[in-house]
């Protein structure tokens, strides 16, 4: 297994804990589930007093790599795997699919599994298998761009 030669997955575990803390924070203070597709999708049908926190959450999310650099940290490598066409096709699938399926990796994956929701567990298994199938097909073909 490649991760043994790369050392212990310290940053992965640390990052996971930060993600979990963010989910607890958003629920504990605002009473909201931390699902990115739901938070972003809610902006499509803005209700009164229900859009500002969504925009702020996304702003914080987008500011994260900037904050890392600002405080002297280094970013991990970010390697694109496809060109504009692949990105557009994948984005359409992700946007439509997450709304139809009521969630993505954060809503179903993190929060749903933490709530022990059978519905989210089913969604996670299905999107993991679909992702593995497609990635196994395209990964050897595309590699890095």
């Amino acid at each position: 297994m490649s991760y043994l030669s790369d050392g212990l997955p310290v940053m992965e575990i640390a990052g996971g804990i930060m993600i979990g803390l963010a989910a607890v924070l958003l629920m504990g203070f605002n009473g909201r589930i931390m699902g990115v597709s739901g938070i972003a999708g809610g902006l499509m049908t803005p209700k009164r007093n229900d859009w500002a926190w969504r925009l702020m959450f996304i702003a914080g999310l987008a500011a994260a790599p900037v904050a890392v650099t600002l405080f002297g940290g280094s970013l991990p490598p970010v390697r694109m795997t496809g060109g504009a066409g692949i990105a557009a096709a994948a984005g359409l699938l992700v946007g439509y699919g997450t709304r139809l399926g009521s969630g993505c990796t954060s809503g179903h994956g993190v929060c749903g599994l933490a709530r022990l929701s059978p519905r989210s567990l089913a969604a996670v298994i299905i999107f993991m298998v679909a992702g593995a199938l497609v990635a196994s097909l395209v990964h050897p073909l595309l590699g890095e761009v």
């Binding site: 940053m11 992965e12 640390a14 990052g15 996971g16 804990i17 930060m18 993600i19 803390l21 963010a22 989910a23 924070l25 958003l26 203070f29 605002n30 909201r32 931390m34 500002a52 926190w53 969504r54 702020m56 959450f57 996304i58 702003a59 914080g60 999310l61 987008a62 500011a63 994260a64 790599p65 904050a67 890392v68 940290g73 970013l75 991990p76 490598p77 970010v78 390697r79 694109m80 795997t81 496809g82 954060s106 590699g143 890095e144």
Partner: peptide, 25 residues
Amino acid sequence: QSLIALFAGLLFGLGLTVSGMIDPA
């Protein structure tokens, strides 16, 4: 509430960044 959302978003983004989730490869 917006301030909490900003902070939660930032913390979430930091987690995604340091863990390497922002690397598609």
